[in-house]
Each structure stands twice: as C-alpha cells, then as structure tokens.
Simulated scan of single mutants.
Amino acid sequence: MRQKDGLIIDGILQENILFNSPSYAAAFVIGGRVNGKEAWKDTNGRSLNDIEKSE
C-alpha cells in the first residue's frame, strides 16, 4: 500500500489512488487494519456489506 506522505495536504487527497479492495482503501484513511466492507457507509448508515447483501 502507498504511504500517505505528501498525498494528503490540508486534509485533501492530492491524487487519485486505486485500491485493490475496500479494506485497503479504509486502512489508508484510518491508518490501520480495518474491515472495509463494514467501515464504508452510505449516507443512510448502511455498510458496503449490507448494500451488497441487499442486491
């Protein structure tokens, strides 16, 4: 996974980054291990996991 150094300035991501999974993306934001399918939520509070199960 890429390091955050220089990629975030004043709280804004400076370039697009493609991650291989929602967990890698969540770990980048949080700075540690996390289940991305539970961490990412929509505006209604539903997790990515809940959304995928309902489809």
Rank of each mutant, 00 (worst) to 15 (best):
N49I: 04
F28V: 01
L48H: 07
G6I: 13
N44H: 15
D50Y: 06
V34K: 11
K41S: 04
G31F: 09
A26E: 03
E55T: 09
S23V: 02
A39G: 03
G45K: 13
I30T: 03
V29N: 12
S21V: 04
E52F: 11
I17F: 05
G32M: 08
S23K: 02
I51K: 02
F19Y: 07
L48W: 14
D50I: 02
E15V: 08
G45I: 12
T43N: 12
G11N: 05
Q3R: 04
D10F: 07
G6T: 13
G31Y: 13
R33T: 02
P22Y: 07
T43L: 10
S21L: 04
R2S: 05
E55L: 01
S23C: 02
L48P: 01
I17M: 05
T43M: 07
P22E: 13
A39P: 01
N16V: 01
L48A: 14
E38P: 00
S47C: 09
A25L: 00
G36K: 08
L48Y: 13
Q3P: 00
L13M: 09
V29C: 11
N35M: 05
E15H: 02
F19R: 05
D5E: 15
G31C: 02
K37E: 09
N44K: 15
L48F: 15
A39Y: 15
T43V: 10
N44S: 15
K4A: 10
I9N: 10
G32Y: 07
F19M: 06
L48I: 09
S21E: 00
N35D: 14
P22D: 08
E52M: 12
E55N: 03
G11F: 04
I8K: 08
N44C: 12
S47Y: 12
V29F: 11
S54H: 05
L18N: 07
L13N: 09
I17S: 01
G31R: 11
G6M: 15
G6N: 15
I12K: 14
K41T: 14
G32C: 06
D5Y: 14
N16I: 00
Y24P: 00
E38H: 08
K4H: 04
N16Q: 08
L7M: 10
I8L: 03
A27K: 03
V34I: 11
V34G: 00
D5K: 15
P22Q: 15
N44D: 15
Q3S: 04
S21K: 05
Q14L: 11
W40T: 03
K4G: 00
I9P: 02
D50S: 13
A39R: 10
Q3V: 01
R2F: 10
